[in-house]
Design a protein around this nucleic acid. Sequence first.
DNA 1: GTCAACCGTTGGTCTTTGCTTACGCTGATC
DNA 2: GATCAGCGTAAGCAAAGACCAACGGTTGAC
Lengths: 121, 121
Amino acid sequence: MQSDQVPVSAATVLDALGDGNRRSILERLVAGPLPVGVLADQLPISRPAVSQHLRVLKAADLVVVSVVGTRHLYRINRSGLEAVRDYLDRFWTAALDNFAALAEGEAAQPADPQGSQHRSA
Amino acid sequence: MQSDQVPVSAATVLDALGDGNRRSILERLVAGPLPVGVLADQLPISRPAVSQHLRVLKAADLVVVSVVGTRHLYRINRSGLEAVRDYLDRFWTAALDNFAALAEGEAAQPADPQGSQHRSA
DNA sequence: GTCAACCGTTGGTCTTTGCTTACGCTGATC
DNA sequence: GATCAGCGTAAGCAAAGACCAACGGTTGAC
């Protein structure tokens, strides 16, 4: 019910993508739909653990499931990816604006020795 | 040394973005560069906690710091965002290919009652 | 030189969360 | 109807990590 009308929040998707095993699951699903048991065989965790990760990924609209008999085929979904892309684009454009504003500020008063000398601690 | 030549891995960036407080920090920095103390005042966590989060964000190339006297001004950086965009684009195109391949398969043998009836658990 | 402001780091505590074992349910097969 | 394959869920436990207080270091002001 939450996979079509209401888009998931970017926070939910990023929390889902914040785990290495969940990213591994998605990378396996890139090659094509897979059932839970096959995913568990390809990962160093048990099948219930995979099932729990898939629940998180499904809540984030990153995967969809097709029930075929007793097999649950999971497949990558684009809805979750859209939410992240939009979220990141906000920072992207904002970083551009910040950089432009900073360049203007430095052009206005170019005398800033320390600010322009060291860039990383 | 890691902020320019060698791009950070998408895993590092996604792990960094997997925390709500770190995302809040980035959202504050969208409006412009801020020192650590001001960030801590705007967030429900202490200043050392903010400092630790900033260390993670800096390792992920999501922020850069400009030292001005005793003040450390943090600003959003695009390098980390690029890594995530590239990573997500892999899934994006792969999901498209999967969908195309699946459509071909269904067109080849459209007789699949259960597979097309229930789509979500 | 002295003091204050600002920040990074460390040690320790506690919450979060990821994993496994055990169990129950559904659908296919005979 | 009985049996088996394939999953999801709940409970308990261990590892990860997020948090704070205290400390030390550096810079600027006087």
